[in-house]
Design a protein around this nucleic acid. Sequence first.
DNA 1: TCTTAATGTTCCGATATGTGGAACGCGATT
DNA 2: AATCGCGTTCCACATATCGGAACATTAAGA
Lengths: 278, 278
Amino acid sequence: MGGNETGDMSVELTGIAHGEAAGTGTLGKAVAVLEAVVMADGPQRFTDILARSGQPRGTLHRLLSHLVEEGLLVQRRDLSYEPGLRLLTLASRSWAGNRFRDVAEPHLRSLHELTGETVHLGILRETEIVYVDKVESRQTVRMSSQIGKASPVYCTGIGKAALSLLPQPELERLVAKMAFHAFTPHTHRSAETLLAEIADIRRDGHAFDREEHEIEIRCVAAPIRVSGSDLTAGISVTGPAYRVSMEQLIAWSGAVRAAAAAIGEEAAIRLGPGRGGP
Amino acid sequence: MGGNETGDMSVELTGIAHGEAAGTGTLGKAVAVLEAVVMADGPQRFTDILARSGQPRGTLHRLLSHLVEEGLLVQRRDLSYEPGLRLLTLASRSWAGNRFRDVAEPHLRSLHELTGETVHLGILRETEIVYVDKVESRQTVRMSSQIGKASPVYCTGIGKAALSLLPQPELERLVAKMAFHAFTPHTHRSAETLLAEIADIRRDGHAFDREEHEIEIRCVAAPIRVSGSDLTAGISVTGPAYRVSMEQLIAWSGAVRAAAAAIGEEAAIRLGPGRGGP
DNA sequence: TCTTAATGTTCCGATATGTGGAACGCGATT
DNA sequence: AATCGCGTTCCACATATCGGAACATTAAGA
């Protein structure tokens, strides 16, 4: 198969957040195209995807055909492409069947009852945090749009907390891959300041988000280590700055750490070899 | 694809129902393996997947490696495989971004308020119904495990309702592909009885599930047609037999039909060419 | 209406990639 | 020590993928 020299452009365009190089191997290309369509806002026309994926016309057309055949994409009557139902089927299984989430959920709830604010559960994947559960006041929404969302580690409480658990070489490998994007005036802009804060987090056992990802939003987070598993995760309590002061976050930090520790221990038991888990 | 004895009906049927023989093309094999792992109950060891997928050892090993590289699967320390986080990310987008669901949701809610019973929204895909939304009394569960689940058309209210919208040739093509499995004593066992009932459904505009899928569970459903789209769907009100009589279902049928009609019209407008939707 | 442009689809030789049977390494069990 | 079960690696072979270019099919413009 021909080399691709266009490669890096597509990564740039496809998404700022995903570091993973698009298109290694045949499957890689297929998934990259799939992601390009799914992550877009509306139905995508052939030309849109062509520009976004950087694949040659012929290749792209075949990839799309196969994705449609497999039910991962659907082609509308106006020839544009959309996510297919099979994706939903696959996904719901991987969420509902996620035992780590099950273990953590009661703790998220009690943390929510204590604080009255939104509680998140996130898992570290390379340089991103993927949110796998959320408990908030307005329970009317079932599967929050937040779930499944991936955010950069360096500007989220859970992200920084999770990083603090990594061995130094691994941490440095990840930091080297990060492109620091300034979401707010308080966002970390360099590896140095981030690493310095992580040293503090290791000492304190908890991390803060001081309006680093979104202005007027603060959180306190604690890392979750599951012994016997490679999984690194974290929980956080998040609230608007006008309602939640830094003092308040500090007051909650103990409870957050305790919940994180409890989840970690319980998960280590319930996810032991043989049983399921994320 | 090898048989599976796991006992979870949905898995068994899901596999059979996709007419697509597992493994057409390279991508097909990859997705088949992915599905085998995701649909299973716990972490799957290499040998489990080997038996289930029917692929040769070498091939399977490479496929799994690629799936892990892409983040669609994760390999645990004990070498077993599980759904990866990237799947969750893809999925949540295809659910949250589903405009058809958005359009339908308010109608599901008001139908729930009227009846007090569980309301489902499902979309037809070949010979299955895929549930894309659900409103039930116990709102505490966010994304119901039901969502994304695929059930056979011939034994569900929504399924039979949706079939009633198809042109006869298409209907017959699908019926020919069905393997009638007797879930309960009331399940359709042959194409003849099913086709006869569909004739009635076309006349009445609504369908019933008389404990055909699960014993003690009844429902009344109505089909949703979205003009200008290939999508065929339906909604239903479901309840336990001890609480919901057939008379009650008949009494609700008008409201269900009205809601279905409203969803269809609204969707036709909001999902028109250019706008998004399933 | 005719011409031009833009978009989606199909074709085909070259070859990188996937294929799968067999051999290998390793740990557990007898 | 020998056997078994399990996961991994290897390699000659075949084929699915690649991608440029030609072809179809509208939509836009003169």
